[in-house]
Simulated assay, not measured.
Amino acid sequence: MAERSFLDRGFADTSMSTIAAELGGSKTTLWSYFPSKDELFAAVLDSKIAHFQEELDGALIPTGGTEAALSRFGRILLRKIMAPSSLALHRLIVAEAERFPQLGRTFADRGPDRVRARLARYMSEEMEVGRLREGDAAIAARQFIALCQAGCYLDRLWRPGIVQGVDPDAEVAAAVRSFMAAWGPERP
């Protein structure tokens, strides 16, 4: 209910009173769980991200090698961020972050930063065993995520309602090929 309220009204126009009324409970009860609208928004983000984090962790298992793990990770990432509710949330954050900087920080801390950090840990492990070139794992993680998002995600984000003929699986496959060309192990 709170998520829907934020997405429908925006952060600025969503009030704790309105959410309490929609839930059919008292404002006092809602305030006892969430002392501020910021904390309620953070809880909404946490609920959306928890299962996603587990899926990403499961993708980064060594089965099939580095390319297979990155392919799994990329497909899960694109499926999540291209979901209509995720696109709506991203648009909301972009629209409101200038007026409410804590909103952008909360989103970044709980979403993209966690995803990048998890991928960077995996890449660091792959670098240590020689399956990826040595380098800054955080940069490698940012680059891989950017490659995954470069095509169909950005089209969908900025052109709502237009369904592109782009295949997200093909986008991820291209991202993995490009990434491995740059970060794959050096050939003898």
Rank of each mutant, 00 (worst) to 15 (best):
I93D: 00
F100V: 06
D113K: 11
G58W: 00
Y153S: 02
A68K: 03
A174Y: 14
V176C: 12
A181C: 10
L103S: 07
T29G: 11
S86C: 14
R99G: 03
G111R: 14
L30Y: 11
Q149I: 03
K48M: 11
M180Q: 10
P160V: 13
L87I: 15
L7N: 02
R72I: 01
Y153D: 03
H90I: 13
G58D: 02
A108M: 14
P112I: 11
M180W: 10
F34I: 09
E134L: 15
H90G: 01
D109E: 15
R105Q: 08
L77P: 08
A174R: 15
E171G: 05
Y153K: 07
R156P: 06
F41M: 09
G104V: 11
C152Q: 09
A120F: 07
R156A: 05
L92D: 10
E67H: 05
R116G: 11
A95P: 05
D136H: 03
D46I: 01
R91E: 09
L30T: 07
E126M: 14
S32T: 12
Y122R: 00
L78A: 06
S47N: 05
A97D: 03
W31E: 05
G135V: 11
A141N: 01
K48E: 09
I145Y: 09
L78I: 04
R116H: 09
V94I: 08
Q102R: 15
T29P: 03
M82D: 10
A59Q: 05
L103N: 01
A20R: 03
G74C: 00
A173T: 05
A42Q: 06
D8H: 04
S178P: 07
F52H: 12
A146D: 05
I81A: 02
F107P: 09
I139C: 04
G64M: 02
V176F: 13
G74T: 07
P35K: 02
R159C: 03
V115F: 02
A170G: 07
A42E: 09
A174C: 09
Q53Y: 04
R105P: 02
T29I: 10
A12H: 13
D57M: 00
P168Y: 03
I93S: 00
R187V: 04
S15V: 07
D155I: 09
D169I: 03
I19R: 12
R110W: 05
R114L: 13
L119V: 07
R133H: 05
H51E: 15
I76S: 08
T106H: 10
A43S: 14
V172T: 08
S26M: 06
S71L: 13
R91H: 15
T66H: 01
G104I: 09
R118Q: 14
E22T: 10
S36A: 05
S85K: 12
V94R: 05
K37Q: 06
L23P: 04
A138G: 11
A88N: 05
V172H: 10
Y153H: 15
L60Q: 02
T29K: 13
L147W: 04
S178K: 10
F100H: 15
M127R: 06
A97L: 02
D167R: 04
D38V: 08
E126L: 12
M123K: 03
M16E: 05
A20L: 04
S71M: 15
